[in-house]
Amino acid sequence: MAKDLQAQERRKAKVRRALRVAANGRPRLSVHRTSQHIYAQIIDDAKGETVVSASSLEKDLRSSLKTGADTDAAKTIGKLVAERALAKGVSEVVFDRGAYIYHGRVKALAEGAREGGLQF
């Protein structure tokens, strides 16, 4: 188990190093997924603060979503985080997939954020 966690941390660090070079001062859209839910945050690394966040755990979304663990929920979360970011004045971000491959729910969240108006 510890070996798997070390590999996951290594993959996450590799992605973050590449993002730091490509960011050019843009905030990063960070994704975290579990077997039951998906979470997204837009983080300003220069200030060290979270600008906006959204997750499938929010009360108003739980009633409208069938489950928090499918691509429809991920797309909804992507649109919601994009809407909140645009309200805060953030329109360009860099996408941080973490240790996850760009497929399935992670890809659906990114597509939802693009549909919502974020550029990356």
Score class of each variant (00 low, 15 high):
M1K: 09
A2S: 13
K3Y: 00
K3T: 13
D4E: 13
D4N: 13
D4R: 14
L5C: 00
Q6W: 03
Q6M: 13
A7D: 12
E9R: 15
R10E: 14
R11E: 06
A13V: 06
K14E: 14
V15Q: 03
R16H: 08
R16F: 09
R16T: 04
V21Q: 13
A22L: 14
N24H: 15
N24Q: 14
G25V: 09
R26Q: 06
R26A: 11
R28V: 04
V31W: 02
H32V: 09
S35Q: 12
H37W: 01
I38G: 00
I38Y: 01
Y39W: 09
Y39K: 06
Y39D: 02
A40M: 08
Q41P: 07
Q41D: 02
I42Q: 02
I43K: 04
D44E: 09
D45W: 06
G48P: 05
V52D: 06
A54L: 01
A54G: 07
S55T: 10
E58W: 06
L61A: 05
L65C: 10
K66Y: 04
T67G: 04
G68P: 07
A69G: 05
D70K: 06
D72A: 15
K75E: 15
K75F: 12
K75W: 03
A82C: 11
E83L: 12
R84Q: 05
A85I: 09
L86T: 05
K88F: 00
K88M: 09
K88R: 15
V90N: 09
S91Y: 03
S91G: 09
V93T: 08
V93A: 06
V94Y: 07
V94F: 09
F95A: 12
R97F: 08
A99P: 09
Y100M: 12
I101R: 14
Y102N: 13
R105E: 10
R105F: 10
K107R: 15
K107Q: 14
A108N: 08
L109M: 12
G112Q: 04
G112Y: 02
E115W: 00
G116K: 04
G116N: 06
G116P: 04
G116Q: 03
G117M: 05
Q119T: 14
